[in-house]
Design a protein around this nucleic acid. Structure first.
Lengths: 340, 340
DNA sequence: TGCCCCATGAAGAAAGGTCATCAGGTTACG
DNA sequence: CGTAACCTGATGACCTTTCTTCATGGGGCA
């Protein structure tokens, strides 16, 4: 199967007996053209179904009006929502979006960056994979002056703008909620320790403990690799602890959902035996029984803010200085934690 | 903020005192080059962090090695899974993927097609929006010999390959399951009638009724516009019917989930008062109480098959003749329907 | 009435970065 | 000495945009 030939300006020019530059001028509505000539050209272009070749155009003007987006996993409802916001607002400003996923690996993250840079995207929006613990590839991007911005999963040492949630504040809120509703031994189930959101949400957890005068117990912090298998392994570890926690705060909802899946056939009652809370507000968190207490982080809003800021920078409407945009989160108490 | 300058072959050529064509030959590992010359060039290119400009390359070879994908909504778990499969298998064969969403509107579907065609994508994979009831834009694509393939939401009149599930078979299975488990009045809640999957799933529903010698009752078919509001409106209509159905088959899971959301506070018991089944197997369908009986349609597998076939056609490894690939679905009985 | 100048509209060339092809130069072998 | 092979350079092509130059017509002045 051969890709069909598309009509070029040269063909229109030949048909009308004018030059290519006249075609170009007509189609960009230039004043340097006689109205009759313009009309003839516009009509012929339409009749011949002419569409500009964006490759040639972009090569000539050194701009593609395309942004690259890299997310860890496209099937995550949160990242899909971010993408949706990015795409809607990029389109509103005349930009296209090229979306890639890293499948949570550093190697694919690097490969995606290479491909997008070769494709001459005007800028990049990147959320780091869970495996990313080295940042040379980002520093390289920075040194080559390729515009990019980090969102949600970021690194604070890279001097570019970033958009995050108030991870510490959200984690503080949910941990406090667990403590206020009677929990004495609150556990934090974290993701990989290098991950920004793991660190920040742990800080919020510790902050709430401190405020209640509780000394942190290392036994009450567990690390998940963020796979379903990893989560279920931790569910078992917790279930078989000599002294179980009475409240569990999970870094992201999928962890909590997996804990519930494992605990239900074991007869563990939520919240009676152990209260449970997450972070993210996945669709499934609202419909599970009992509905999961969680922290809402609106992905669409994040995407919108991230792309708006990057485009403002690209178009000279915002300073190039890196800024940090922090979105507030909202605690959503549901039935997986006790009532106040 | 200006996008940084990227290194060109011309710059390497100047640095090494060779021609641009020698650089090109070295970097594509051509045999028409002295090994020493090649080595010098490859090393310098690496040192200068050279990356080919894919715009220029694609313009010259008339190929981008990029596929365009258009889905109705990226936040749908099913479509996100399709995209994941498409991207993984496209990447394996050296292709990039440019993903767009139509937000379930025909207008955006058309705009996305235009943009992707202008971007000179080598082919398109399209799943139609729920609003799409005219197909001129697809016929135009076909007449211009632009390679494309339809998946999941297709149109049978367009002479291109398509990948679908056995929608009729899946719907037949789930309706039969409802009938076999005691339902006497089974309702079908459909999406827009023009939509391929609405029609096919209705056919399966009617087929199962016929097999049980049941005359279809027009009052037992309702049309949803596939919005949450539309679904909840139908939930209320059903609840207030003079004679309710005792089993409800919903065209896609999100309809069923919304029915449950509305019925739960009304005290309607599932499956005791009304059994309920869906189609899609969203993540939430497994965790809701009671877990929803549904039909599994693996999006990743669909994406994989779709992109593999399109690429086979593009690369001359498969005939250009349109074929229809039908994936089997699997009934997943859960607690929203009665046990056999 | 003729000539010159200015304005308008258009053509042509060069540029963007890369690839493919042809031609040329040099060396070795018959 | 002639021919073939190897290696390299130069050039044109891909499609579009932008800038400079050119041509023509009209108006004004002598």
């Amino acid at each position: 199967m051969k890709k069909g030939h598309q009509v070029t300006m040269k063909e229109i020019a030949k048909k009308l007996g004018v030059s290519v530059s006249t075609i170009s001028r007509a189609l960009k509505d230039s004043p340097e053209l006689h109205p009759d000539t313009k009309k003839r050209i516009v009509e012929m272009a339409k009749e011949m179904n002419y569409q500009p070749n964006l490759l040639a155009q972009s090569l000539r003007i050194s701009r593609t009006n395309t942004l690259g987006v890299i997310v860890p996993e496209i099937t995550s409802h949160f990242f899909a929502s971010c993408i949706s916001g990015i795409q809607d607002y990029a389109n509103k400003r005349g930009y296209n979006v090229m979306i890639c996923q890293s499948n949570e690996t550093l190697e694919l993250e690097k490969a995606n960056i290479r491909t997008l840079v070769s494709s001459q995207v005007d800028g990049l929006l990147i959320s780091l994979s869970r495996e990313t613990n080295k940042y040379d590839h980002l520093l390289d991007l920075y040194n080559r002056e390729i515009p990019f911005l980090l969102f949600d999963r970021v690194n604070e040492d890279i001097p570019v703008s970033r958009v995050t949630f108030n991870d510490e504040g959200g984690a503080y809120q949910v941990t406090k909620h667990l403590l206020e509703t009677g929990c004495k031994r609150v556990m934090y189930v974290s993701g990989p320790e290098d991950l920004y959101i793991s660190k920040k949400r742990k800080e919020g957890y510790l902050h709430a403990l401190a405020e209640f005068g509780i000394t942190p117990d290392p036994e009450l912090v567990k690390i998940s690799d963020l796979t379903s298998e990893g989560n279920m392994k931790i569910a078992n570890e917790i279930a078989f602890m000599k002294q179980r926690p009475d409240g569990v705060f999970c870094m992201i909802d999928p962890i909590a959902l997996d804990l519930m899946f494992v605990w239900k056939p074991m007869g563990i009652k939520i919240p009676d035996d152990m209260a449970l809370a997450g972070f993210t507000n996945n669709p499934a968190s609202a419909v599970i029984e009992p509905p999961l207490t969680t922290v809402a982080q609106p992905g669409y809003e994040m995407g919108k803010l991230a792309v708006t800021h990057l485009l403002d920078q690209l178009e000279g409407q915002a300073s190039d200085d890196p800024i940090s945009i922090v979105l507030e989160t909202t605690l959503l108490p549901r039935q997986s934690t006790k009532a106040l």
